[in-house]
Amino acid sequence: MKIIEAIGAYILDSVAALGNFVLFLISGVTYILMPPFKPRLTILQIRTIGANSLFLIVLIGAFTGMVLGLQGYTTLERFGSEAALGTVVALVIVRELGPVLAALMIAARAGSAMAAEIGSMQASEQVDAMTVMALNPVQYLVSPRILAGVISFPLLTGIFDVIGIMGGWLVGCVLMGAQTGDYFNGISSQMGADDIKLGLWKALVFGAIVMWVSCYKGYHAERMATGVSRATTEAVVLSSILILAADYIVGAILL
């Protein structure tokens, strides 16, 4: 009986935790839509996310494109279809690797920083201080970040995509033997609005997920130093898992 009780308690706890996790997102989104709006806080967060992650995005974007250029060229060359290199690189980046890799990078940099920031605000009672002022901390700390994520992830993903395509061109056309004309003509004739839309939708969803998870983990960090460091780790791990899961789901829905 003890075992069944324990399993029951565990399941109830898990369901309650999942419920809290979902409610957290709902209240965060509700305060985005409800006045008073906090545009200054949102802009500040966009700036923070950008400042934290831009360099990494550029770097990873460039290398991803270069690797695709190299492998794509050597593979396509076997079939004599180097002319398709631009199309392959661009579609893979815009539809898949751009949103996913950019989101993983931002989660690692900006998401973990956010979990740590909110976690230490919780530990030093700043969140309680807001509550006692009859202000809702979610409105000040969570909603602006979710909105900032939804705005900045597509922008950063766009930058990743452009840099990646240029990286593929650099290796495939300048260093290897593909033709620059073929490369860009292929992209402009083969890549459609649907591909771009898919990439942007993914970036938008990932932005909401990373901010949601990071804020939640920080907000519920245990009130001590180890609690904050645990929260940052968990934020990155859970963000990454949910990014990959959502990548599949969004892809399947918008197929």
Partner: peptide
């Protein structure tokens, strides 16, 4: 009701809790 009652309170937290 809680928000209304909180209008009467001023609280100094153990750690100060200033927004850094």
């Amino acid at each position: 009701g809680i928000d209304a009652v909180r209008e009467w309170f001023g609280m100094l937290f153990q750690s100060g809790a200033l927004f850094d």
